[in-house]
Nucleic acid binder design. Structure first.
Lengths: 172, 172
DNA sequence: TATTGTTATACTCTATAACTATA
DNA sequence: TATAGTTATAGAGTATAACAATA
């Protein structure tokens, strides 16, 4: 897999080819792209709803996976247990989610979104989806947009290989 | 563009379709994928070379764009000016980069990487590229890997549309 | 008046350690 | 012994405000 791809200019200032290039570093391109998605989130959800990115994700995951535990959430998001506790605290104090003791395992607390939480998550997601699509429309076709989502998902699936955690298996 | 894409199961627990889905949120998939790329960076560069992601990116951008200014770097990375000053301080104290007064604009400091900085950046990038490719090999074909880089770059190009900053134009 | 770069400072977010309760 | 959840605390990272120097 040489660096010859598409029609990009792969030459370096000094004219050497085959140089290790930042533009081919996935992590770098992800960070650059995240500048855009972060801005979209902030404008469409962060400011209007007063939700941090993590809060939104936690809330939505609870909505889409009712009855999950804190530990499961922590693994899914690669966040430490104390932090999950804090984020759930904030969501619960706003009446968006609630903790319910588990019947099977008395250590565990099951998470459910309140009707308000469900409504907020749904509204927030719809706003983001619309805004992302609009922001990308000038640069990505609808097909490319869909492909990008698929490829990113595949990257996320490589998580088990890179870190020893057994998470990300539930695709939560 | 309805949610019917590929062969994914687009049904929700309650059986309703067309629900706003987290899996279609670009920002969410980016965050999930970033868990992988962050882990790769940490293992391949962060720990071995003692470089933070921002430090590595700043260093490499200086290597690839000698003579740039701090302000230009700050815009390219969407980082505030005080933070760039701090990161450059750390790189300069390690002898990886140096600040040189500009002849044209006496306010400006031009950035250059030292030979050590160039060598470190090159080694780090090579390690990341190899490790990323290896980590993705089981989940992405070489073609998919290349397409992903292209699509992320296009997303990054949507930056001008989403925020009022005139940055990202130099493709630095 | 705007821009470059710096300093000082506060805030947000995350990580670690220690603990209780349960399995 | 391992896991779920919490608390307390420290650290890393980022942002804001104010400033000096130059354009």
């Amino acid at each position: 897999m040489p660096s010859k791809r598409f029609h990009r200019a792969d030459t370096t200032p000094a004219g050497r080819l085959e140089e290790a290039r930042l533009h081919d570093v996935l992590g770098y391109q992800m960070a650059q792209a995240a500048i855009v998605t972060d801005a979209v989130f902030k404008a469409q959800v962060g400011q209007p709803f007063g939700l941090r990115p993590v809060e939104y994700t936690v809330l939505t995951l609870i909505v889409e996976n009712p009855g999950g535990s804190l530990a499961r959430l922590a693994r899914a998001l690669a966040v430490t247990a104390p932090n999950i506790t804090m984020w759930i605290d904030r969501l619960e104090s706003r009446g968006l989610v609630r903790r319910t003791p588990s019947a099977n395992d008395r250590r565990s607390l099951l998470l459910y979104a309140t009707p308000q939480g469900q409504a907020l998550a749904r509204a927030a997601t719809q706003r983001i989806l619309d805004a992302e699509r609009q922001a990308m429309a000038a640069h990505l076709t609808a097909g490319e947009h869909a492909i990008l989502l698929e490829l990113l998902h595949k990257v996320a699936c490589a998580r088990a290989a890179v870190s020893g955690d057994g998470a990300a298996s539930s695709d939560v």
